[in-house]
Computed example of a mutant assay.
Amino acid sequence: MSSKTWTAVDDYIVSSIFEADPVLDAVLATNRDQGLPAIDVSAAQGKLLSLLVRIRGASKVLEVGTLGGYSTIWMARGLPAGGKVVTLELDPHHAKVARSNFARAGVSAKVDMRVGPALQSLAALGSENVGPFDLIFIDADKPNNPNYLSWAMRLSRPGTVIVCDNVIRDGAVVKKDSGDANVEGARAAFSFIGAETRLDGTAIQTVGAKGYDGFAIAIVD
Rank of each mutant, 00 (worst) to 15 (best):
E128R: 12
I73A: 05
V9C: 00
R32H: 11
G57V: 08
R56C: 11
A26G: 09
K110D: 03
A29M: 05
P22T: 13
N31H: 05
L62A: 03
A95W: 05
D33L: 13
N129S: 13
G179M: 02
L28V: 15
C164W: 01
L62V: 12
G179N: 03
L88W: 01
L48D: 07
Q34Y: 09
N182G: 08
F137I: 15
P146A: 10
R54F: 03
N182C: 02
G159Q: 10
H93K: 14
D25Y: 07
K47W: 14
V130F: 00
S191F: 01
A123D: 15
K60M: 09
D33K: 15
A95Q: 09
S3A: 14
R187N: 07
G46I: 01
V130L: 15
G116P: 05
R154I: 04
V14T: 11
H93T: 13
D141S: 12
T5N: 07
N129T: 04
A43T: 05
S191V: 09
D25M: 10
L125W: 00
L28F: 07
A123K: 15
T30L: 07
D139A: 11
F215C: 06
P158R: 15
E184M: 10
A26F: 06
L67G: 01
D134T: 11
L51W: 03
L62G: 03
D221Q: 14
L67Q: 01
K60I: 04
D33P: 06
G69T: 02
A152F: 02
A109H: 11
V64C: 13
L24Q: 08
V27D: 02
V130Y: 04
M75F: 07
V23D: 09
E128P: 03
A103L: 05
E19S: 06
T206C: 14
A140W: 00
V115W: 11
L36P: 02
A124F: 08
V174K: 08
V27P: 00
R169A: 05
A58I: 04
V111H: 09
E89C: 07
I13P: 00
T206Q: 04
G57D: 04
T72L: 07
R154F: 07
F215W: 11
A20L: 12
I73S: 06
H93F: 06
D21V: 02
D10P: 01
L155G: 04
S150L: 12
L119E: 12
V167P: 00
L28N: 13
